[in-house]
Computed example of a mutant assay.
Amino acid sequence: IAPWNYPLQLALSPMIGAIAAGNTVVLKPSEYTPAVSAVLSKLISSVFPSDYVTMAEGGPDISTALLQQPFDYIFFTGSVAVGKIVMEAAAKQLVPVTLELGGKSPCIVHKDADIQLAAKRIVFGKFTNAGQTCIAPDYLFVHEDIKTKLTEEMKRAISEFYGPQPEQNPQYGKIVSERHYQRLLSFLNDGVPLTGGQSDPDHHKIAPTILDQVKDDSPVMQEEIFGPILPLFTYSDIGEVIEKIQSRPKPLALYVFTTNPEIERAVLESLSFGGGCVNDTLMHVATPYLPFGGVGESGIGSYHGFDSFNTFTHKKSVVKQTNRFDFAFRYPSSKNGLRMIRKILK
């Protein structure tokens, strides 16, 4: 069951793993991207026989019907809320699942970071696809000593990437639907924009926005943002950052920018998260040599590369025994069986 935010890649990538492992596949694309689904359906039907790979287009009713079928495996990418529905349906038939979910992925910039490079890489990671990326930095912790310098560099990077009016740039992404657009607009009231905040209702676009003076209990901090809004918090001690992240559900991704090995080690060893980067964003998802997946509320299981093959296979353990000889001591009729077994175990 594929999502709408990367409707081609997130449909085909797990499908490739399933095919490589020798399975047949029923693929359910998102109803939010019907044009992509139509193209994908035409492509798949031209390549694969329908009893090998088939598409099931439609809305939630189709997903509900599919979840009632006795599949061998269910692979779902989407929100935490829908992931719980998928897992509940799968549990009724004891169907194993991989759940690629999301959550609020933190980004930390310590005072010793390469600020210019950090700014560019955070802007890239956050505002690619207008922030509609499951592993996008969801909120930012910056050391108080470098807040002004980092935000200035981020403003410069936004202008370099998307121009002075990003919401008017045809190559800057749209928000997928009116409902999501209105939800994101409401988040703009939860702080003070240091940059951005402009919107284009006709095209469902919101300019890349860095939001300052945000409270921990504000609506923008209660759910995954999944849009081009980045709440910013300052800190003086890395310990307080670690404690705040630990108080939240385990995120799908985490990013830390530092040149201090002790800070790096403290963050990576103290926090549980699906995957992430040191001094970068998003790039851990680009390598086929690392498994990709969440932990806790951010997901169950992983895939990519050979891990996709492992996800869609079952390791069948078989012993083929010899007939040339037989150990008599293994049987209960053996007089010295227990003594021999004790010797072997020693």
Rank of each mutant, 00 (worst) to 15 (best):
P3Q: 01
Y6M: 10
L10M: 02
P14L: 08
G22E: 09
N23W: 00
V25T: 01
P29S: 05
A35S: 15
S41F: 11
P49A: 11
Y52T: 14
E57T: 09
S63I: 12
L66Q: 00
V80K: 04
A81M: 14
A81H: 15
G83F: 10
K92V: 12
C107M: 09
V109C: 10
D112W: 02
A113P: 10
Q116S: 11
A119Y: 06
F124G: 10
F124R: 15
G125P: 01
P137K: 04
Y139E: 08
L150R: 09
P164R: 11
Y172I: 02
V176I: 14
R179C: 09
Y181S: 04
R183P: 07
L194D: 15
G196Y: 04
D202N: 07
H204R: 15
H204Y: 12
I206M: 09
I206D: 05
V214I: 14
P219F: 06
E224M: 04
D237N: 07
G239R: 08
S247Q: 03
F257K: 01
I263C: 10
V267G: 08
V267F: 05
S272M: 13
G275L: 01
G276I: 08
V278P: 00
D280R: 03
D280F: 03
F292M: 04
V295F: 00
G296N: 01
G305C: 14
S308L: 00
T311L: 13
Q321F: 13
T322E: 09
F325P: 05
A328P: 07
A328N: 10
R330W: 01
